[in-house]
Simulated scan of single mutants.
Amino acid sequence: MESFARNSTLHYKDVKIPAPWGYISGRWYGNRAERPILAIHGWMDNLGTFERLIPLISDCVGVLCIDLPGHGRSSRLPSGICYSVYDYVYIIPMVMKEFGWTTVSLMGHSLGGVMSFMYASMAPDTVDLIISLDVLLPRRVTNPSKITQDIEKCLAEERRQVDAAQEPPSFTLNQLRVALDKGSNHSVPLKLADHMLHRQVAKSQIYPDKLFFSRDGRVKFYHIFDIEPGLAAEMAKRIRRKPYLIIKGGLSPFVGHNCDEAMSILSQDNPNFHFYEVKGASHHVQLQAPEECAQYIAPFIRSHRSATNRIIRNSEITKSKL
């Protein structure tokens, strides 16, 4: 079988965070003696989305990347439970509780960035910095009937999983690369697809030279709500003046005019708010242009998570079991 083409030599420790439905799978890169950055991937992705970025920033502080439930190697939610951005937000305090953190540093791409904004607005006193990759707010819902359609599709997918007596359709590795490239609107090109695929496929037991997507098919139809402008403004006011870094892909529509008011509030009288655009990159900006992203992220982390600041702001030590 063709092998995955990846270059990832950075040292890490695999972790499993207990959850009532199973566990959350993760990788802790770099320093494990102090509280790390918590990195959260986007919809239908997994922690592999950060593989090219982490080696360029992990000298500043460790990074704990997690797979959200139903994604990557994390457990699926139980049958009968649909995926929702509301419930995903609770993953953040769950991780904090597991490691004994009273403060968290957040880095999120796409859905992970939306989660970071939402959590920081709900519990601003527990967040010391936010790094948001090509997102701030969810994109506006233009077709409300899609929500109904997604509910029906999610239920159909669940019935399929329960009733299916055989594994999902399988493909060659190259076919999966093409599918990921196409499904991401070419944001995850063929040459970078393996950074994601190695955590979201399984070997077919029927066709030894083929693989199938192992993530929960229900995540395709998860529910994300539209944060209307008034609510977005109130949420941003609760985060105001906190260190906030937003990096936008120059070819991506995900940080649009619907974000203008919230960004204005976040940046008002805030020398620690930064916005950068990476020309030529699309939605997976951290995967396509990790070097340029690191030019902005590394000094931001150093500024707000320096050795002195870590001692002052957070004296917690990671549980010895890691």
Rank of each mutant, 00 (worst) to 15 (best):
E167F: 01
T172W: 00
T172N: 02
T172P: 03
L173C: 07
Q175D: 12
Q175F: 00
R177Y: 01
R177M: 01
V178C: 08
V178E: 14
A179F: 03
A179H: 06
L180H: 02
L180F: 05
L180R: 14
K182L: 10
K182Q: 13
S184T: 15
N185Y: 07
N185P: 01
H186V: 06
H186W: 10
S187A: 15
S187L: 10
S187D: 15
V188Y: 04
P189T: 08
L192C: 12
A193F: 02
A193P: 07
A193M: 05
D194N: 05
H195W: 08
H195E: 15
H195I: 06
H195F: 15
M196F: 13
L197I: 08
L197Q: 07
H198P: 02
V201D: 04
V201E: 05
V201A: 09
V201C: 11
A202Q: 14
A202G: 11
K203F: 06
S204P: 08
K210I: 00
K210M: 08
K210Y: 01
L211C: 06
L211G: 05
F213W: 15
F213I: 13
F213A: 07
F213D: 03
R215E: 12
G217C: 05
G217F: 00
R218E: 04
V219I: 15
K220I: 05
K220E: 15
F221T: 11
F221N: 09
F221L: 03
F221Y: 15
Y222W: 13
Y222H: 14
I224M: 12
F225N: 10
F225M: 09
D226S: 07
I227Y: 02
I227L: 07
E228I: 10
G230Q: 12
G230S: 11
G230L: 13
E234C: 09
E234F: 05
E234V: 06
E234T: 11
M235E: 04
M235R: 04
A236M: 02
A236Q: 09
K237N: 11
K237H: 09
I239N: 03
R240L: 10
